[in-house]
């Protein structure tokens, strides 16, 4: 078995080719447009928020990739959860995510979204964002540099172009009961209204 970056890249490309061969030209075009225009709702939940301004402004200029910040979840395609989430924040994050239109993706920024990071024994932060919301792309680090975030975007772009059925929003739609149960366990009576009706007529 070959090793190294090139081998990894080739394996990705062959996978890409096999998926693409199953798609029609229109689907591929749509996926291309989706990958090249990403509206981001940057939710500054934790310290990761400090890495986003340089990413968006002159120093790193992520607008080159077609990534633009928007203010409201209605227009956003990508939700960045930047760092640790206290339950209080998470409630708003979930609400925001649910109001986004499909297809939608989540980038978990920083180690805290993966396993709690340095807040692993905190009584007031969640440990694994994926229990509550389907994360499409993790950007590891504490804190990850803007370069890492850009790398995350590029990887996510590839994922979007594949238009795979493993996208987070499809997982969320199909396994809503699971996510909802986790949310209810965390928030108890204060959980936000269910969004299940939204999936009626979809698929």
């Amino acid at each position: 078995m070959e090793e190294g970056f090139n081998a990894y890249r080739q394996s990705l490309e062959s996978e890409e080719q096999s998926i693409k061969s199953t798609q029609s030209v229109v689907e591929q075009a749509i996926a291309w447009f989706r990958a090249h225009s990403m509206f981001v709702l940057a939710y500054g939940t934790g310290c990761g928020a400090i890495e986003m301004p340089p990413t968006f402004t002159s120093r790193y200029d992520i607008e080159r990739l077609g990534v633009v910040g928007v203010a409201t979840p209605r227009q956003a395609d990508i939700l960045i959860v930047s760092g640790y989430c206290s339950p209080k924040t998470l409630k708003r994050v979930i609400r925001s995510y649910e109001q986004m239109s499909d297809p939608k993706y989540i980038i978990g920024l920083g180690s805290c979204t993966i396993n709690g990071g340095m807040y692993w024994d905190s009584y007031n932060t969640i440990k694994k964002l994926d229990d509550f919301l389907p994360v499409d792309m993790y950007v590891n680090g504490c804190m990850p540099r803007p370069e890492a975030l850009i790398e995350g975007f590029v990887k996510l772009q590839e994922k979007i172009r594949l238009n795979s059925s493993e996208a987070g929003y499809i997982k969320y739609r199909d396994n809503y009961a699971h996510y909802r149960a986790n949310q209810e366990r965390l928030f108890g009576a204060q959980v936000a209204p269910s969004y299940e009706e939204n999936f009626a007529g979809m698929n």
């Binding site: 409201t72 979840p73 409630k91 994050v93 609400r95 925001s96 936000a192 209204p193």
Partner: peptide
Amino acid sequence: SKAKAAQNAQDISYCGEV
């Protein structure tokens, strides 16, 4: 794109709040 009705009058984007 499919038009999907908002759930109710309170289903507005209100800074993540209900």
